[in-house]
């Protein structure tokens, strides 16, 4: 649990960050809260000769809510997501999800940017952002660009972000309707055995729109378009739930680990999704 030697950089501006990334290439990694990267370095599973700490960069920890649009800076912590009252009002799924991440000590440090950028399939926010249809904003030597969260994840720890780019923020339309983030885990501090993010809008007693994303049931977060589609137009009855689960099960690909075998995970994924849909429907 002793990391290899590394140089610690603490730039004051994003330009400096980009310059450092350009200079050191693969040898450099940016760090937000450090709650994934530092343990990996201590385990010597991540070799980071140049560690670039983002905490002195201005304006990276801002939460802006304007005209129904929400933007979260990369350095916004899970704790911020929980305690920001306006955000809790406009996008309560974030608070519900953040409360299920680890423990208060971790949430004081852990950030939305790190959670999204790391590409760990166990992280909760990628699924939530896919569910919300968010866009992930990157800055690199050639300027800024944005990628849909649903297109961002390629494989475990592999994302659309280039090595010389930095994830700076995520933004999305303030959601409406019912929401739920349902997560089964073995204990506090664990990743999900299965988790589901669900948003549902209701019109005339039927589901008008639905979005479903699953966490830690594949090597990437899984937005299941068909699961959402299976719900639309229904009154969220038993058959609709079964159809949504069946669609979701077609999209996930869990692997066996200490949390259990594949059959168990698939079963629990279905149970968790039904519970999430039911709760979201009840709130819609």
């Amino acid at each position: 649990m002793i990391p290899a030697a590394f140089d610690y950089h603490r730039p004051k501006s994003m330009d400096e960050v980009i310059a450092l990334l350009g200079e050191h290439g693969d040898d450099a990694r940016v760090m937000a809260g450090g709650h994934s990267l530092i343990p990996m370095m201590k385990l010597r599973m991540a070799e980071v000769p140049h560690l670039i700490d983002l905490q002195d960069i201005e304006n990276l920890a801002e939460i802006t809510i304007e005209e129904g649009h929400i933007s979260l800076g990369a350095m916004v912590t899970q704790h911020d997501l929980i305690t920001h009252s306006k955000l809790a009002l406009r996008a309560p799924i974030l608070r519900e999800a953040a409360l299920q991440i680890a423990d208060p000590q971790v949430r004081y440090m852990g950030t939305i940017g790190g959670n999204l950028a790391n590409g760990d399939p166990g992280n909760d926010m990628p699924g939530v952002m896919q569910c919300l249809g968010a866009r992930i904003n990157l800055i690199g030597p050639d300027g800024a660009r944005s990628v849909a969260a649903r297109d961002y994840y390629e494989a475990a720890y592999m994302t659309d972000r280039e090595d010389d780019e930095v994830l700076v923020s995520v933004d999305f339309q303030a959601p409406s309707g019912g929401y739920a983030y349902e997560k089964q885990k073995r204990k506090i501090g664990d990743y999900a055995t299965a988790a589901a993010a669900v948003m549902i809008t209701k019109s005339e007693g039927k589901i008008a729109s639905a979005s479903v994303a699953m966490t830690n049931l594949s090597d990437v977060p899984v937005w299941s378009e068909e699961a959402g589609a299976a719900l639309v137009g229904t009154a969220c009855d038993g058959a609709a739930l079964e159809a949504a689960v069946a669609a979701m099960l077609g999209d996930i690909d869990p692997s066996e680990d200490n949390r259990g075998p594949v059959a168990f995970k698939r079963h629990v994924a279905g149970v968790i999704l039904k519970r999430a849909i039911t709760r979201a429907w009840g709130r819609a």
Partner: peptide, 16 residues
Amino acid sequence: HDHWRIWQTANGLGLH
């Protein structure tokens, strides 16, 4: 008796 083993017991007894 972690989650998956309890689930497996229930499954083996036909409770699913």
